[in-house]
Simulated assay, not measured.
Amino acid sequence: MKHPFINNKILMLYYGVFWLVIGVSNISIQYFWYETDLVSSSLSAFIYFVIYPVLGASIWFIIKYNSLEENELTWVLLYHLIGASILNAIWIYLGFISIKVIDSGNLHLLYDTLPGRVFSGYVMYVIFVLFFLAINYYQSLKEKIKKEAELKSLIREAELSALKSQINPHFLFNSLNSIASLTISFPEKAHEMVINLSRFMRYALQHDQDETVSLKDELENIKLYLSIEKVRFGKKLNPVFEVEESCHNFQIPNMILQPLYENAIKYGVYEATEPVSITTSCTTENGSMLIIIENDYDAESIRNRGEGIGLRNIRQRLELIYGTSELIRITDLKTSFKIELLLPKKIPA
């Protein structure tokens, strides 16, 4: 940790201005109230409020290298006593030189007030120690808060990364299996699926875990994902999009929607014998955007439907990004499954 005056020029300026004001006030009181001549009052103020503050700035180093965390209290007090004595000796000597050079006729005043000056020197030393301890505490607290914020950010990124890594491999595994099955029977479709899968994965990997993208870009990627799945399911999968123009530029977390469509296909399309529509609608109101994704499903084929890993991941991501998991609502309508996402316009920093 560097000297606070080196790190903070404004603090050093305030420090100088403070002692300047104190010095000028002291000169005024001595000159107008006690009728001390201007030279003597200015010289006294110079010794107390210029020389000592300059020397006192070095007290910070004594505090830094003799902290209670590294030394016993007895040794710390001894170091400060030695430091205060040395500083006092230098201060009194410089005061003696200043008086001798500027007004040698008042040297007797220094000798007459020497005990009081020594005592005041120790008192000022204690004041400076408290001052620098307060500054060190404030700086340490700021650094601690900063490090905690950085640590929380790293943890948050790690959690988001872990959640996202649970989504993509599952989809990738299914897609590769489908490509393998299509290679012999429908090589053209397999080729198309490989290209689309490559584009989809490139989109997923080029964004950070908590990066935001426009809804328009996210839906384009979703359509790419659905085109990959449509190769597997053919006419059974029928995606429908009803998105207002006002929603297109709305910023949302990257890849937050894909697990919802994966969930719809897993529980709706996969088990169905008839075509299944996955309808996506979007509206904006009062600075928020409502996204509704609804899909049909066969209630007979899925009797014990719980919240899958994709939905749990989304809840956790919303909690990490927005600070709440109440932005998603899931409704089972017995013949269809509806998911509503109400996302605010601004994502908390």
Rank of each mutant, 00 (worst) to 15 (best):
F32T: 14
Y137M: 11
E274Y: 10
K64T: 09
F200K: 02
V17G: 00
L87A: 08
S161V: 01
R315Y: 08
T331N: 13
H108W: 10
S325W: 08
I291K: 01
L327T: 00
T280N: 03
L333H: 12
S227M: 09
D37N: 15
D208M: 04
E218K: 13
E148H: 13
R156S: 15
L320Q: 07
I145V: 13
M124T: 12
P187N: 10
L94C: 10
M1Y: 09
L224G: 01
F128T: 04
Y34L: 14
E271P: 10
F250L: 04
F337E: 01
N196C: 07
E340I: 07
H3T: 10
F241R: 03
N174H: 03
G116K: 06
Y65I: 07
T280M: 02
N8H: 08
P169F: 00
K266Y: 11
S42R: 03
I63A: 06
L320Y: 06
K189D: 15
E35G: 06
Y261H: 09
F18D: 02
L20I: 03
I22D: 00
T283W: 03
F119C: 07
I82D: 04
R305N: 11
E340D: 05
I291H: 01
G287A: 00
M201T: 15
I292A: 09
L176E: 04
S277G: 05
L260C: 04
V24G: 08
S153V: 11
I265T: 00
P344R: 15
I102K: 03
F46H: 01
V118F: 13
E157Q: 15
N168D: 09
D112H: 05
H3N: 11
S277Y: 07
F337A: 06
L160M: 05
S42F: 05
A162I: 07
H3R: 06
N174S: 05
T284C: 09
V118W: 08
L333Q: 12
F250W: 03
Y31F: 10
K64I: 05
G56P: 02
N8W: 02
T324W: 11
R329Y: 06
V126C: 14
Y267S: 01
L176S: 03
H80L: 02
A89E: 02
N304G: 09
S178H: 08
Q166E: 14
F5G: 06
I27M: 14
R305A: 10
E307Y: 09
G234E: 13
C282R: 05
F49I: 05
Y261I: 15
D208A: 10
Y15L: 12
V39K: 01
S288L: 02
F186D: 15
I339F: 08
S301N: 12
T324L: 12
M201L: 14
Y15H: 12
M193R: 02
